[in-house]
Design a protein around this nucleic acid. Structure first.
Lengths: 154, 154
DNA sequence: GATCAACGGTTTAAAAGTCAACTACATTCC
DNA sequence: GGAATGTAGTTGACTTTTAAACCGTTGATC
């Protein structure tokens, strides 16, 4: 008897599905990024702008925003710095917690989002949503919801 | 009558599923990357080693490898350079096509893969495959297969 | 109300990725 | 066989991301 447990390798179908997911995701993200580039932003920037636009007063605390996108705070600091330089976002120090910083969407940031959103959504449809049956796409939602849930914040 | 077509926004469920996918993927990749780090590589390196290990003579042409992973050739050149410095991969110039270069797995590269694979597969199971019903996971495969297919090489 | 761990965010430097230009070889076509 | 065009891969400059150290503030504990 050994203490090591036999590795449960993926079976053929699982293997194929896993690789389809890896390759499909790589292609999809590259494509979405590409199409957003003509608005001068990438998908990461886009998602930041969206989160801000939906929030009360169009602003969020840095840590909160970082968590929602599962990014390191350091990365977000850099990205917000660039978006601030592009005048799409502005920083405001938080009065109630002196450590805190709000990232707030500017008018220009909001306008850019309004301009880019239709193209982006079309692209998400064309390259993902409309390619799947509603049931299959719902399954994708369930699976990655479970993934998020399982992995948690850290 | 206008020339612009009304944007077909995502409905509530689609929106939720799309965001679950984005967040879940971010968390999953970070997690897998993390767990591979103790073997000194990231998931990107890992996938390269796997592709090579499965190929005849454990080697692939640069462009071929880049296509399979949907990476730019430039990026692959840099990555292979690092893997070569780590002695996990070696370059061999291709005799039949003098422009060509083979990336070939070294013995050390193969050994590292053998060592890392069980942990990695466990992690893929624990954080993805085993969280989904077989049907749901199969749906993920179908969807991203369609995505890959639709977007194609470029 | 002083101490000390934890939190929120930034900084810095190094690592990795992108982009455009470039070299060398192959292929096509006249 | 020679010009033009395309393919394979690399290079170098630049941008983005990562990792670790850091500073000021907060909150719990004594």
């Amino acid at each position: 008897m050994t203490t090591t447990t036999e590795t449960r390798w993926l079976n053929a179908e699982q293997q194929v599905a896993w690789r389809a997911y890896l390759l499909g995701t790589a292609r999809l993200m590259a494509k979405l990024d590409d199409e957003l580039r003509r608005f001068g932003i990438g998908i990461n920037d886009y998602e930041i702008l969206v989160r801000l636009s939906e929030s009360p007063d169009r602003r969020l605390r840095m840590a909160d925003l970082a968590d929602r996108l599962h990014q390191s705070r350091s990365r977000l600091t850099h990205t917000i710095g660039r978006l601030e330089a592009a005048e799409l976002v502005r920083r405001k120090s938080c009065t109630s917690d002196k450590r805190g910083v709000w990232a707030e969407l500017t008018e220009a940031g909001y306008n850019l989002l309004v301009e880019a959103a239709p193209t982006h959504v079309d692209s998400v449809r064309e390259n993902l949503v409309d390619l799947a049956s509603p049931e299959d796409f719902a399954a994708v939602g369930r699976v990655f919801d479970a993934v998020s849930e399982h992995i948690g914040q850290h």
